[in-house]
C-alpha cells in the first residue's frame, strides 16, 4: 500500500516533468493558487461555505472510476483497497478541510471529512447505464458525452441561480453562469483518439468551423436558462449578463482551439498560462484565439488532408 502511494507520487512528478514543469515549484504554486482562489471565492460569493465542499467532491469524481477500482480490487486485498480509497479521499479533502478550519467553519470542515470518508465506499455516480437524454445528440460527441458526465453540475448551477434570484444576490447568480461555461470548457480537455479526427471529410478550416459553431451554440444553449433568468430578474444588469455570455462562449472556443493546436499532444505550459491569464485580462482572448486557430489549422493539416 505504501508502494502504491509512492508510485502515484512518482507518476505525478513524471507527468509534470513531461509537460516541462518542475514538480516542486508546481506544488508551491498550486498551494498559493489554492489559497488565493479560495479566499477570493469566500470574498465574492455568498453562502460560499456550502458551495465550497462541492469542489472537493468534483475532484473526487475520477477516483470512483469503475475500471480503476476494479483494477485496485484485483491488485489489493479488500481491506487494503478500502484503506487506499479512504486515504485518497481524505488527502483530496484535506486542503478544503484546512481552509474551512482557517475560516472557522468547524462543523462544515468536519462534515467535509466525513463526506470524504463516506464517498470512498462508492464508485463514480454517473457510471450507471441509464442514458440521459440531451439536446446535443445531433452533433456528438463533446457536449453529448460531457453533459452526461457532468449533468449534476448544471443542475446545481440552475439551483444556485434560483437561490440567487430568491435572495436577490446578483453576484451569486453570475457564479453558476461562470460554472456552466467552465464546465463546457472542460469538455475539450480530453483528447479523442486520432481516428475520430481522421474520419472527417472536411479540410482543417471546415472541421474547425463546424466544431466552433457547435461549441458556441451548445454552450450558450446550456447557459441560457441561467442568463435569461438573470436578465429577467436583474434587468438593470442585463448588459453584464450579456458580457459574461459572450466571454463564456469565447473561453469555450479558446479551449476547443487550444486542444487542436497541440493535438494529439496535451496543451503545453505557456499557452496554458496564457489562457489562465486571459481570465484576468479577457481582451487577450482575441490574440490567443487567432494564434490557436492558425496553429490548429496547421496542426490538423497532416490528419485532414
Amino acid at each position: 500500500m505504501k508502494f502504491y502511494f509512492a508510485l502515484q507520487y512518482r507518476r505525478l512528478k513524471h507527468y509534470l516533468r513531461e509537460i516541462g514543469i518542475n514538480p516542486y515549484i508546481t506544488f508551491v504554486i498550486v498551494i498559493i493558487v489554492f489559497v488565493l482562489l479560495s479566499n477570493r471565492f469566500f470574498q465574492k460569493i455568498a453562502y460560499a461555505y456550502y458551495i465550497y465542499p462541492f469542489f472537493a467532491i468534483a475532484i473526487l469524481n475520477s477516483f470512483g472510476n469503475k475500471k480503476r477500482n476494479e483494477f485496485l480490487k484485483n491488485c489489493f486485498s479488500v481491506n487494503d483497497f478500502r484503506k487506499i480509497r479512504l486515504l485518497e479521499n481524505l488527502l483530496v479533502f484535506t486542503p478544503f478541510f484546512l481552509f474551512l478550519l482557517y475560516k472557522q467553519q468547524f462543523i462544515i470542515a468536519f462534515s467535509v471529512y466525513v463526506i470524504g470518508a463516506l464517498l470512498s465506499l462508492f464508485n463514480k455516480v454517473n457510471k450507471f447505464n441509464f442514458v440521459i437524454p440531451t439536446p446535443f445528440y445531433k452533433f456528438p460527441f463533446e457536449f453529448t458525452s460531457g453533459f452526461r458526465k457532468t449533468f449534476w453540475i448544471f443542475l446545481l448551477a440552475y439551483m444556485l441561480t434560483y437561490i440567487s434570484i430568491s435572495v436577490t444576490n446578483f453576484n451569486l447568480g453570475i457564479f453558476p453562469l461562470i460554472i456552466t461555461f467552465l464546465t463546457s470548457m472542460s469538455f475539450y480537455f480530453t483528447q479523442e483518439s486520432i481516428f475520430f479526427v481522421w474520419i472527417n471529410s472536411e479540410k482543417p478550416a471546415g472541421f474547425l468551423w463546424e466544431k466552433i459553431k457547435t461549441a458556441i451554440f451548445y454552450s450558450i444553449l446550456i447557459s441560457l436558462p441561467i442568463s435569461l433568468s438573470l436578465i429577467i430578474f436583474f434587468s438593470d444588469r442585463a448588459f453584464i449578463v450579456m458580457i459574461f455570455e459572450i466571454l463564456g462562449a469565447l473561453f469555450v472556443v479558446t479551449s476547443l482551439l487550444g486542444k487542436y493546436a497541440y493535438y494529439p499532444l496535451e496543451i503545453s505550459l505557456i499557452p496554458g498560462f496564457a489562457i489562465g491569464f486571459s481570465f484576468l485580462f479577457p481582451p487577450l482572448l482575441l490574440v490567443i484565439i487567432s494564434y490557436f486557430y492558425s496553429k490548429s489549422k496547421q496542426n490538423l493539416g497532416s490528419i485532414l488532408l
Partner: peptide
C-alpha cells in the same frame, strides 16, 4: 475506438 457516454446510435451518427 470508443467515446465515453455515447450511445451506439450516437456513435453511428
Amino acid at each position: 475506438y470508443s467515446l465515453s457516454r455515447i450511445t451506439g446510435i450516437e456513435y453511428l451518427q
